[in-house]
Amino acid sequence: MILPIVAYGDPVLRRKCEAIGPEYPELATLIENMWETMYQANGVGLAAPQVGRPIRLFLVDTSPFAEDEDFSPEEQEKLRAFKRVFINAQMQEETGKKWAFNEGCLSIPDIREDVTRQDTITLRYQDAEFKEHTETFDGLLARVIQHEYDHIEGILFTDHISSLKKRLLKGKLTNISKGKVQIDYKMRFPAVKRGR
């Protein structure tokens, strides 16, 4: 089932999310619905708060980046094969050189900005079967994971841009929260009254 994606301005996007256990109600269905929602919106990652759930869960599938000629054949292969569920993730370390990349977000449609992040991360997390992993990721994989990890910490990519750029985007962001944006996927807008 395709779920509505929560738009910028909804308080759920600013909450530090709660850890969950295997007993979380209908978790397998939620994960399945999140994959379906993400693919329908042409995303490469989706975090639970983006569908209104303040829990430490996000998904990543970087295969759409595999066609990008800017990446080496090895990197393309790595991106093509990467599809993962992250539960209760905890950042252990962010290292390496900082690099900028143009990011966007399904909760903030029609806005893309260069965001600088470190190129290597180590993350402790559980998979969909609640098996523990500690893994190091680099390059674009690290970037996508950092973006989704930020969501479960209540951080948006626009928090990483300069205050001048934020001021310039203020009107656009307000319009997004009011539903004044052209999108081709289901969204829930915080400043739109329901029941009309």
Results as ranks from 00 to 15, higher is better:
residue 84 R to S: 06
residue 125 Y to G: 11
residue 51 V to Q: 09
residue 28 A to H: 11
residue 18 E to D: 13
residue 114 D to Y: 14
residue 158 T to K: 00
residue 163 S to D: 15
residue 158 T to R: 00
residue 55 I to N: 07
residue 12 V to L: 09
residue 82 F to M: 08
residue 77 E to F: 09
residue 61 D to I: 09
residue 92 Q to H: 03
residue 133 H to T: 07
residue 179 G to V: 01
residue 174 T to W: 06
residue 147 H to T: 01
residue 56 R to K: 14
residue 7 A to C: 03
residue 58 F to M: 06
residue 94 E to Y: 06
residue 152 I to Q: 04
residue 82 F to C: 02
residue 87 I to V: 12
residue 27 L to N: 06
residue 140 L to R: 09
residue 10 D to I: 04
residue 91 M to A: 09
residue 181 V to Y: 10
residue 66 A to V: 02
residue 138 D to T: 11
residue 139 G to C: 09
residue 54 P to N: 11
residue 153 E to Q: 15
residue 105 C to P: 08
residue 21 G to L: 01
residue 27 L to T: 03
residue 10 D to G: 03
residue 35 W to A: 03
residue 9 G to N: 09
residue 155 I to S: 12
residue 128 A to Q: 15
residue 71 F to G: 05
residue 76 Q to N: 12
residue 73 P to M: 11
residue 117 R to L: 01
residue 24 Y to P: 03
residue 66 A to D: 11
residue 50 Q to M: 09
residue 168 L to R: 13
residue 191 A to N: 15
residue 135 E to D: 15
residue 32 E to N: 13
residue 127 D to I: 13
residue 14 R to P: 04
residue 104 G to C: 09
residue 75 E to A: 13
residue 171 G to P: 00
residue 108 I to A: 07
residue 96 G to A: 00
residue 35 W to P: 00
residue 88 N to R: 03
residue 10 D to R: 06
residue 181 V to S: 10
residue 170 K to C: 06
residue 5 I to K: 08
residue 178 K to Y: 11
residue 63 S to L: 02
residue 3 L to Q: 13
residue 10 D to T: 09
residue 13 L to D: 01
residue 195 G to H: 13
residue 95 T to M: 00
residue 193 K to G: 01
residue 64 P to E: 08
residue 103 E to F: 08
residue 90 Q to N: 10
residue 18 E to P: 02
residue 117 R to F: 07
residue 12 V to I: 15
residue 178 K to N: 10
residue 118 Q to M: 12
residue 21 G to K: 06
residue 2 I to F: 03
residue 137 F to Y: 15
residue 179 G to Q: 08
residue 84 R to Q: 15
residue 174 T to S: 12
residue 116 T to G: 11
residue 146 Q to F: 02
residue 82 F to T: 05
residue 50 Q to H: 10
residue 27 L to Y: 01
residue 124 R to M: 12
residue 57 L to H: 05
residue 114 D to L: 08
residue 195 G to Y: 12
residue 26 E to I: 02
residue 103 E to S: 03
residue 32 E to S: 14
residue 81 A to S: 14
residue 99 W to I: 02
residue 35 W to N: 07
residue 18 E to I: 04
residue 21 G to T: 15
residue 160 H to V: 03
residue 147 H to S: 05
residue 86 F to P: 01
residue 132 E to G: 07
residue 144 V to E: 07
residue 122 T to V: 13
residue 104 G to Q: 11
residue 171 G to N: 13
residue 91 M to K: 07
residue 154 G to M: 04
residue 10 D to H: 14
residue 15 R to W: 00
residue 100 A to V: 10
residue 67 E to M: 09
residue 29 T to L: 14
residue 175 N to C: 09
